[in-house]
Design a binder for these strands. Structure first.
Lengths: 368, 368
DNA sequence: AAGGCGGTTTCAAACGTTTGCAGAAAAATT
DNA sequence: AATTTTTCTGCAAACGTTTGAAACCGCCTT
């Protein structure tokens, strides 16, 4: 077994690999006895502890690779109390929104040797609550959260926070919790977009807003109102409708608008899925987009480019949001008790055909 | 500490909970010393071992709940060698395809107390390889796989299989691996769809096919060819183009078709994303869908309902596929070495406006 | 010659479970 | 009453790592 005595070697393992079924993994014990040193030395070497002589470290790394060693994360976590896993709690995975953010989170986390556990609640608060418990039970080192719009599990999250679990929010930030969050500059962009619709001649702009509990969605509504005010256009309550983020809700709202005979020449929805539903229903009614009605969404993703006509929207830098969220969480994990810091990212306005017959205004931030 | 001696009680823990930061979790040791019994009894009771007297078991369950015990999955896994976690390897999460299947997988797995680890390779074979290694390193009890179309990591999967990791495929089944898979009856549905296009008067049907390595995609192509043959329509190589599954590829193919002056009156793509790209490009060229060109996709999801006009496609029962895959994997895990069994699920044909001006043919399986 | 001091390495005790085996108590058989 | 069987519980050794504290070694200082 021991190299110094010339007995056996890694062939032992290679043989077993091919034969026995559950195949024993190589452990640090194996490396240690192979080199006739103690396990603690091996452990420290592999952890890049500076108390290990350079040659020893290199020798250990080399034989670890030779023997095909893979550290057992279970044992490491059990002993160290850190799982090197963070949880990501999302409220939907139908649109590419979440998956893009997750990609960003992974970029940072995997680089830091941390793996991530994803739970999707599909906008079901009960499922969300269960997911939070899964996170807790999985002993994650921290979690990144995008809550359901209802925000009814805030108490549960507070409990976790009380237990010392680091936590970062993105997308939807619940009012009344002090935790780092990464949000987009929704107000500015929504203002700009409304402004743009007005400048291109629209006067009767419908706004489909989200639930008030979510601060970020409220911002969009506020921007809409303030921009109307700037242009001295009266704020018409009939033109403001609340809906949740789904195409079906969009269709419903469009239907309501058509039925009630309200006259409108633009629709600005707080979510792409709603805007898409609106477009579809208006299409069916024989209305032309954008000639008859301009449509704009918000919080867009690749989806908005796939529909026809391509949808004007505001695209948050999803991947970057994920990366920022990951960085914030790492800060929290590494320095518990550090004060909570927020990050605002810059969303990009995408003026596309759904709002402008000629989608090439000179002030377009990025035209496609 | 010990109840029998009237010392301390759970208040001890409750107190600590509120104060100390990293908050010690309640362990079976705590329960044991609380009741003055051995940890093994507690462990067995909580595992529903039949060697425990009913009253003892109930007592233990009760106090476990009182003390707020939550089993430490790390320790359990380390000792037992089972992680009660299965991996899910997907090649994309942009479309809702994956997330629906994952939902199905979760339905079954969570019911069986198994959690799932999701890795997305975004159709990048290198990332896919890394993800496979993450799975291996995470000591999952088994994995459910939907490979990249390139299929270049098949060797790596074979290695895992050789190490005794149970494995189930869905969606794309690599040729040349014996493992359980769940696939849809693609051939039948593709045949039907082609037939339908021909019956509605289309003669020059373009087929956009996938890479040959994937058996399920080859089926679609075969069905297309066989159906043409049935109608004595010659198979024209110029009308068959290979592309990978993305809207951009769809646009590229459409552009190629327009440029080369090939005449065609229908496009049947092996993937919805391709079909959507085609539609967009044809729209831009001023062609009407379906009047000038009928378009049909395959392997659809909610996405196909969002675009305009709604896309004719074949929708596999995604959730059911996930559930079947999960069941197959559980079989493999519980009875290692059992022979591999395949499951075929029935996909639904959705005739929508993109292929039929009047989407209401009498033989439509489900019209919307 | 005794002591001190870095730089390295080892010892041994955790971490919270599961589980084969032994042992005790109770029940059943002789 | 003595034995066997059955039912239940306890002991203690794992699982593979991390980590504080101790120990060793060679070298320098006094």
């Amino acid at each position: 077994m021991c190299q110094k005595f010339g007995i056996a070697n890694n062939l032992y393992y290679l043989c077993r690999d091919k034969l026995s079924q559950p195949m024993k993994r190589v452990t640090i014990k194996d490396i240690a006895s192979h080199l006739c040193i103690s396990v603690s030395t091996v452990s420290r070497a592999l952890a890049d502890d500076r108390n290990i002589r350079k040659e020893t470290r290199e020798l250990i790394f080399r034989t670890a690779k030779e023997l095909g060693y893979q550290r057992n994360p279970l044992a490491a976590s059990l002993r160290s109390g850190r799982t090197n896993t963070v949880g990501v709690l999302v409220n939907e995975m139908v649109s590419p929104f979440a998956s893009q953010v997750i990609q960003g989170i992974q970029n940072i986390m995997h680089f830091n040797g941390i793996s991530i556990l994803i739970c999707n609640s599909d906008n079901d608060p009960d499922q969300e609550r269960r997911n939070i418990q899964i996170m807790e039970n999985s002993l994650v080192d921290g979690i990144i959260v995008s809550l359901c719009h209802t925000g009814q599990n805030i108490d549960e999250l507070k409990r976790l926070q009380g237990r010392g679990v680091p936590m970062v929010f993105f997308d939807h930030s619940p009012a009344g919790m002090t935790a780092p969050k990464v949000v987009a500059n929704n107000y500015d962009k929504a203002f700009y977009l409304t402004d743009n619709l007005i400048l291109s001649g629209r006067r009767h702009i419908v706004h489909i807003k989200g639930p008030e509990v979510m601060a970020d969605l409220a911002d969009i509504h506020n921007a809409y109102r303030d921009c109307l005010c700037k242009h001295r256009i009266p704020y018409d309550r009939d033109l403001v409708i609340e809906a949740s983020a789904s195409p079906d809700e969009g269709r419903r709202v469009a239907e309501h608008l058509l039925d009630s005979g309200i006259s409108f020449d633009a629709v600005f929805a707080c979510h792409d899925l709603i805007a898409i539903g609106v477009m579809n229903r208006l299409h069916d009614a024989g209305l032309r987009i954008p000639e008859d009605v301009a449509v704009a969404g918000f919080s867009g993703s690749q989806l908005s480019k796939l529909v026809y006509p391509p949808l004007t929207t505001v695209e948050p830098p999803l991947c970057e949001m994920g990366e920022e969220a990951a960085r914030l969480l790492l800060e929290q994990i590494r320095h518990p008790g550090a004060e909570s810091r927020n990050v605002t990212v810059d969303a990009k306005i995408k003026l596309r055909k759904s709002s402008h017959a000629e989608a090439s205004a000179p002030h377009v931030e990025e035209k496609e």
